[in-house]
């Protein structure tokens, strides 16, 4: 069990050796976003900007203009909300090579409550032109996406989670930006997930199989650009399409899937996620249960 923010921190510190142009900026959250490992190893390439997320994004933009590959880290709520205008107008409009590594996304932030739970960040970032939006589900996929981000030239929003979750992939997994990963080929339902909900969907797949219900799970680690072909293929091959995300059902993964299917292969889609409301305090797994995005909830929806 490891949190994707931990994997991010480890990947940065490791890749910092190989990629000398990588610089990291944080807004007084290095111990939480895990950029602390990079800071310790490469203090001259780490910049704390203080509790000033707007300035964080602007400074990162300037470093990108100076030929560096900046990772700007803070909580998702501040990266996408507080600094939205800076991300849109200063970074994305000029297609600057800034990687926005947004940790503590979704209700799984837990006890900090609604003010710190970004439930709209996918929606906001997805609608900004030039922005690539990714949301890895585990350790291996996070480490892969960080190196991919370094090699990709342009702005990227990397959505990371606070809690430790199951490891899903191994060294042999082949990842590709913009390509979803299909688990299994059950025809009873397709469950499309991203980030922390992928492990939940996979658990549901296992449980349902015991009762002879065969589903497939699609990990959409790249929310933009989204893997249209795979989504359409799965809609054609299965009886039900369900999306599940630790995000509002408005504008996130579920909406992105609906956009694809409504144009390419009209299909009923059941969107599981936070239903147009703010979150609250609680333990992260209790919150997932409360808002209905656990393996159990997925199983119920499939069975219905």
């Amino acid at each position: 069990m490891i949190a994707t923010r931990e994997s991010y921190g480890k990947a940065l510190a490791e890749l910092g050796e190989k990629y000398k142009d990588v610089v990291v900026l944080d807004a007084d959250l290095a111990t939480a976003t895990k950029t602390i490992d990079f800071k310790k190893k490469f203090p001259e390439r780490f910049f704390d900007i203080g509790i000033a997320e707007q300035d964080l994004m602007g400074t990162a933009a300037g470093l990108a203009l100076g030929g560096k590959i900046p990772f700007a880290s803070t909580f998702a709520i501040f990266a996408s909300g507080r600094a939205y205008d800076q991300v849109r107008n200063t970074i994305a409009y000029s297609k600057l090579n800034v990687k926005i590594a947004a940790t503590h996304a979704g209700i799984t932030v837990g006890e900090d409550g609604a003010s710190h739970q970004a439930l709209e960040d996918i929606s906001l970032m997805r609608s900004v032109p030039n922005m690539v939006v990714v949301s890895p589900a585990d350790d291996k996929s996070t480490k892969w996406i960080i190196e991919e981000a370094i090699n990709y030239n342009g702005p990227m929003y990397i959505r990371l989670a606070r809690p430790a979750t199951e490891e899903i992939y191994d060294e042999n997994t082949k990842f590709e930006l913009g390509k979803g990963i299909q688990h299994g080929d059950g025809e009873d339902a397709t469950v499309i997930a991203t980030g922390v909900t992928v492990a939940e969907a996979l658990k549901a797949k296992e449980e349902l199989a015991k009762d002879g219900i065969n589903i497939r799970v699609v990990d959409i680690h790249t929310i933009k650009p989204i893997d249209k072909d795979l989504i359409v293929k799965c809609a054609k091959e299965t009886k039900k399409v369900i999306t599940v995300e630790d995000h509002s059902i408005i504008g996130g993964l579920g909406t992105a899937v609906c956009e694809v299917l409504s144009e390419e292969y009209p299909t009923k889609v059941i969107r599981m996620g936070i239903k147009d409301e703010f979150g609250q305090s609680g333990k992260w797994n209790e919150l997932m249960e409360h808002y209905g995005i656990t393996s159990k909830n997925i199983q119920e929806i499939v069975r219905n």
Binding site: V23, Q54, G58, T59, G62, K68, D85, T90, Y93
Partner: peptide, 22 residues
Amino acid sequence: VSSGSLGQGLSVANGMALAFKL
């Protein structure tokens, strides 16, 4: 540097200045 939304240019200048120093 692109600009238009006020208040953002100095941050970008700082970033470029940091890159020059590096």
